[in-house]
Amino acid sequence: MSKPMTKTQLVAAIAEAMDADKKTASAALDAITEIVTKEVSNGGAVTLPGIGKVYCRERPERMVRNPATGEQMQKPADKQVKVTVAKALKDSVNA
């Protein structure tokens, strides 16, 4: 398995694909990140065509166990960010 692409590498690839400079590509990536973060933190969902859907799921209060001590304790309700991968991406990876 290869190393994950860094933000710098992603910005360079976006700039090349858009035939634009790296500053414009970086601004576009930052804008997308900000929009997705804002929407998901407000309880919404964002679909990135060809990639998948990013959404927030609420988890109820529950009992958990501390693995070090074995002690049972109550964990308060929280939220968890989930990503459902698009079928097109799954198919292209498995092709």
Rank of each mutant, 00 (worst) to 15 (best):
M1T: 09
M1W: 13
S2T: 14
S2R: 15
S2V: 09
K3H: 07
K3P: 06
K3D: 11
T6C: 08
K7L: 11
T8Q: 13
Q9R: 07
Q9H: 02
A12T: 06
A12F: 07
A12M: 03
A12C: 02
A13L: 07
A13F: 04
A13N: 04
A15Y: 02
A15S: 08
E16R: 15
M18V: 02
M18A: 13
A20D: 10
A20P: 05
D21C: 04
D21A: 04
K22H: 10
K22Y: 00
T24G: 09
A25E: 05
A25M: 06
S26M: 13
S26H: 14
A27I: 08
A27N: 13
A27T: 08
L29G: 07
D30W: 02
A31S: 12
I32Y: 12
T33G: 09
E34M: 11
I35N: 12
V36N: 04
T37V: 05
K38S: 10
E39F: 04
V40R: 03
V40Q: 08
V40C: 06
N42V: 02
G43A: 07
G43E: 09
G43L: 01
G44I: 05
G44D: 03
G44C: 07
G44N: 10
A45Y: 07
V46K: 03
V46N: 00
L48A: 02
L48Q: 06
L48R: 04
P49I: 02
G50H: 03
I51V: 14
G52L: 00
G52M: 03
G52P: 01
K53P: 00
K53D: 01
K53S: 09
V54Y: 11
V54T: 06
Y55I: 04
C56L: 14
C56K: 15
C56H: 06
R57L: 12
E58T: 13
E58A: 14
R59C: 03
R59H: 05
R59M: 07
P60E: 09
P60W: 06
E61R: 03
R62F: 09
R62E: 05
M63I: 15
M63D: 09
M63P: 04
V64L: 14
V64Q: 13
N66Q: 00
N66Y: 08
N66D: 10
T69D: 05
E71N: 06
E71D: 05
E71Y: 08
Q72L: 12
Q72S: 14
Q72K: 15
Q74T: 15
K75S: 14
P76I: 08
P76G: 14
A77T: 01
A77L: 11
A77V: 10
A77Y: 06
Q80S: 14
Q80T: 14
Q80E: 13
V81P: 07
V81T: 10
V81D: 04
K82L: 10
K82I: 00
K82V: 05
V83W: 02
V83F: 13
V83R: 00
T84R: 15
T84C: 11
T84V: 13
V85I: 15
V85A: 10
A86Y: 00
A86M: 06
K87S: 11
K87R: 12
A88V: 13
A88C: 03
A88E: 13
A88I: 09
A88D: 05
A88G: 04
A88W: 00
A88N: 08
L89A: 04
L89G: 01
L89F: 09
L89D: 04
D91K: 06
S92A: 12
V93C: 05
V93P: 09
N94D: 11
N94T: 10
A95N: 14
